[in-house]
């Protein structure tokens, strides 16, 4: 008797939450910036050409491929944005989740229903995940359009040197979008956990961003390379396996496991903290 009602109530709350997220001017501004970066990247590469021979190394190597095929702009844009700009946007939304309501004095009213805390937390997390998916998809679509307008399209050359049809290239982009979203969803769990610890949304957001940057610094120190497999940031750009032939699933599988571990640990921390703390605001 109570179940269907609870599910309906969850969906009602979820609908209102996503509505709020996507109506917020600052979130829309962030999405606009995210969509603009691939345009900037595409135009810059079109005007000035890619890195010359010998200049390209490491992650920069992918830029040389864009000139040959517009689809590569999508992979390049995602690989670039997934490092900082996407995490920052996700942190703003997820870090605002609980702390924002507490700071605004609205948390009390949201929690009037019994068993409301777990529901509110899952709704907040689901909202952040939907925002992550929207942000990653938007970057991919923007890059796709810019890539197709400015650069030749057609069969796509993989990193292994083999060529696959355009449609399969699109399919592989879809896989990358889902992988990057999973990575951002793991960060959203971290950010939400921080959000339950404070009543100042800015504090939770800043803490998440600082954490991301600190993790990347740790990941960049060669002497600490043994830690890399445990760092969340290390796996965000680990989707190059889809560009190989045959598709290298092992590394992406490991990445997804890391994302799942972070989501479970920080999700449960958020839950334990939020359901046991005193709400005064």
């Amino acid at each position: 008797m109570r179940r269907p009602g609870a599910v309906r109530a969850w969906w009602r709350l979820f609908a209102s939450e996503t509505g709020l997220i996507f109506r917020r001017p600052r979130n829309l501004a962030m999405l606009a910036v995210l969509a603009f970066v691939p345009v900037l990247l595409g135009v810059a590469l079109r005007l000035f050409g890619g890195p010359g021979e010998g200049e390209a190394d490491g992650a920069g190597a992918i830029f040389t491929q864009i000139a040959g095929n517009g689809l590569f702009l999508t992979f390049a844009a995602l690989a670039l944005l997934v490092q900082l700009l996407l995490p920052v946007s996700v942190a703003v939304v997820a870090g605002d989740g609980i702390a924002g309501e507490a700071g605004g004095g609205t948390l009390r009213y949201l929690l009037t229903a019994p068993a409301g805390r777990t529901r509110l937390l899952t709704v907040k997390y689901a909202g952040a995940v939907v925002f992550s998916l929207a942000a990653v998809t938007l970057v991919a679509l923007s890059a796709l359009v810019v890539g197709l307008v400015l650069f030749p399209a057609g069969p796509i050359t993989l990193l292994s040197g083999t060529t696959v049809p355009f449609a399969e290239g699109l399919l592989r982009i879809g896989v990358v979008v889902l992988y990057a979203t999973a990575g951002m969803a793991a960060l959203a769990a971290v950010s939400l956990a921080l959000s339950t610890l404070t009543e100042a949304a800015v504090g939770a957001i800043a803490a998440t961003v600082v954490l991301v940057i600190a993790t990347q610094v740790v990941g960049a120190v060669p002497q600490l390379s043994g830690l890399q497999p445990y760092l969340l940031t290390h796996w965000w750009s680990g989707f190059d396996g889809v560009l190989r032939d045959p598709v290298a699933t092992a590394e992406m599988g490991r990445g997804l496991l890391v994302f799942a571990a972070y989501t479970v640990i920080f999700g449960s921390v958020a839950w334990a903290r939020f359901t046991s703390r005193d709400v005064t605001a």
Partner: peptide
């Protein structure tokens, strides 16, 4: 033989 790097690959076929 394939030597995968980040966003790159060297192959000997």
């Amino acid at each position: 033989l394939a030597l995968p790097g980040r966003m790159s690959e060297t192959d000997l076929i």
